[in-house]
Design a protein around this nucleic acid. Sequence first.
RNA 1: GGGCGAUUAGCUCAGUUGGUUAGAGCGCUGCCUUGACAUGGCAGAGGUCACUGGUUCAAAUCCAGUAUCGCCCACCA
Length: 923
Amino acid sequence: MEKNYQPDALERRWYQQWEQNGCFEPSGEGQPFTILLPPPNVTGTLHMGHAFQHTLIDCLIRTHRMKGRDTLWQAGVDHAGIATEMVVTRQIEAEGGKRDDLTREQFVERVWQWKQESGSTITGQMRRMGASVDWSRERFTMDKGLSQAVIETFVRLHDEGKIYRGPRLVNWDPVLQTAISDLEVVNTDEQGKLWSIRYPRSDGQGEIIVATTRPETMLGDVCVAVHPDDERYADLVGKTVQLPLTEREIPVVADDYVDPEFGTGCVKITPAHDFNDWAVGQRHGFAPINIFTPEARINHNAPEHYRGLDRFAARKRIVEDLRTMGLMVEEKPHTMVVPRGDRSGQIIEPFLTNQWFVKMDELGSQWLETVESGRVEFVPGNWINTYRHWMENLQDWCISRQLWWGHRIPAWHDLDGNVYVGHCEAEVREKHQIADGIALEQDPDVLETWFSSALWAHSTLGWPDPERMQAEGFERYLPTSVLVTAFDIIFFWVARMIMMTGHFTDQVPFHQVYIHGLIRDRDGQKMSKSKGNVLDPIDLIDGIELDPLIEKRTATLMQPAMKAAIEQHTRDEFPDGIPAFGADALRFTFTALAGHGRDIKFDLARCAGYRNFLNKLWNAARFVGMNIGDEALPPLNQMIDDPISNWIRSALNRTIQQIDQALANYRFDLASQALYEFIWHEYCDWYLELAKPALNDESDPARVQSTRRTLAEVLEQALRLLHPFAPFITEEIWQGLRKPLSIQHDYIVTAAWPEAGAIDAAAEGDVGWLKNVISGIRSARTELQLPPGKPMPLLVQQADDSDRSRLIRFNQLIKRLARLESIDLVDSSRDSSDCAVQLCGDLRLLIPLAGLVDIGEELMRLTKQREREQKGLDIVEKKLANERFIANAPATVVEKERTRQQEHQAAIDQLDQQLEKMRQLRS
RNA sequence: GGGCGAUUAGCUCAGUUGGUUAGAGCGCUGCCUUGACAUGGCAGAGGUCACUGGUUCAAAUCCAGUAUCGCCCACCA
């Protein structure tokens, strides 16, 4: 083994071997354990959030595989309609081309090429991270089977009357020129203006004033609304006003949507361009007047003067014209909510178009119950509130998109405007008896990405094809065990999967949903390309120099103005670039950070710390290797009854318990912590040091053999426990233990998960005592500023039988670890005024000063100790002085306090005596 | 407007059903190249558990309120 841990070569080597030897395939035996990978978008490369999530999933998968479960990690990628189209469009533009020059077929072909490229990048990254995926079952949301599932779903929902098409006001992105769902709209507070405009009364009796943030939409006004109880305008209801800039007169109506307190209490109503106004218009029977083209330019329904202007130019001109006409009352700054597309960032227009919808009323209420009843459990549990809130406020789901990349809607139009839904054109013709001579054209729209994602659970298991369902284990693997995902897609994906899988299979897609946090940068900022603070997980694995990192972060910026700031920030945060940590260290960092909070700040220092941890393990393994050799250890008739061995095995068992419990609760952080604590602070810091004398004890071969075996066996089990967290290094070291321990199994990947054995209280007591004695001596040595390496004598006073026994049994160990030349029991009568005294319970450890130390030093040390004890005593006595504490607290608690009081008091007495002696000596 | 969450050491975070002097990692200080490991060892320093009040023998922990920050949802033009 190399002296230093070097992850790069070994990580690549092991992944290949595992994959080639089919380590990741479901075993077909045991209780199934299945996790669906939330399919990453084929928009490029995986980010830190993916790496984090995949680490958690892989950790669960590997653990359960080792536990003997029939483990399936169903992986794949998502076509991600809008996002992928945008990526490819940008590429075409970067090459100097224009998307509009391509036909639909050409463009889709181009996206398929990109999909191949991005898809293989993603799977390559997952392999580097160690994701133990059965790649033979990898799927894509647009492959043949999934397309079949999409068509089947659409047709069946349509036949059930749950899908309909019609003209509705939808969220329209005028730049991408597609509808998007409510969920894809992000509402941001932005600084805008509020204009107050005069609408003259038709009867010439004055005017009314309306306030609006969007004056350009007035061209589509159909009425003005006031509150029914608003006395100021009671006489106006039913009358008409002149709509400025147009020839139209529009009525005044009463509707309690209007808040009389806001502005003037008069609202202009534009049903075609505002969701609220749409509802008002419906109530009062007004036909909406659409004034925009799909690009959001003013159309032919508006006066000639404004036609062709885009929405922003139109606003400007209308405001100017109103001013000129003296109809503008005022203009003031106003903070308002602006809807923007989550992908494009463009301002979204409510726009009247024909779209396809899924009716959500029945679907929603039915599948809320699924979660309320616990058939699907959220972890942490309070996410049920989020889910419930959404399910109780469902709007119909707009599923059609005016894009090219995606599942084409299985509907055909004839020239008379009839629409027929079916699996294919032939089926439609036959079913509706449409002659071949009659032209039919397939609907040009595609389904939104989440429509197919919603089918991910059952469609990846072969649904709806009975043969494939049989072959792919539909019955066996559905419901899956747990979905591991982030909270930002509970609505987009989790809820819709519960609905769709439930509706079509009567199953839940998963029993549990573990919601993890989002990875943010060191400062808690969300990582995003535009902020230039993204990290590529591969760069943490392999390392990256500062300059390439800056180049990477600034190369494809949408706003070049940010470049300097990003460069500066990057130089500040990574002055020396990023060192290579390896995939195992990165994975361990992720699991250690995975508490149940919402935000996870990624700090490079943590990653470095865990790389050091793995280096520590590496060197411990080297030490073990040096001691046990390469050959099979000779069989042992029986282990010698050694408290040190018993203790480390007991501590290991405790650790196994902790990890099992932590993982059962998805507390990856606690599991990581338990591993770190055990491996570093128990096994390395104490056990290896305690084992060293036994390993070299030539006088006792049985003891040597027994210790070697414990050394190797405990390490081997610890490696198995660590394997799901750090798969590569554990495999590498574990392979070296196979021969010495005569392990038949080929890979740690499929080795058995350790089972917790018994806790050995006696051994734990012994070693606890031993640690206290050694630490006490070391501490005294440091405080007295004695050279750490210099051997010195130790005298022990007030040892009881148990102390004496332990002093005898552990004599050599104490001497070695505390660097003593001798340990001698002395009578209580022996004067200790020439010694430093370290209390260890009732035990007095005396270090002869012999002129080594100034008595002043020792007096200070003792005084400090006394202060510490006094502080403890004060707290205890305060409690015990409280009569109600004595009366009300459980007897055990009171007893504990009494014991504690005695201990503190005894220590103080001892220290006082010693202080007194030394003071006398001094004077 | 409604809902959820956070506030513990310089930084990042643990802290179970209330019960030792509130823990860890990183950073910091001192000493140490001791034959596994300086990516290290040993020993330390460092906290008014955001604030106020309440419940209790006992509160970081339970309750109420306040403050600050964050997220989600929502039709006030």
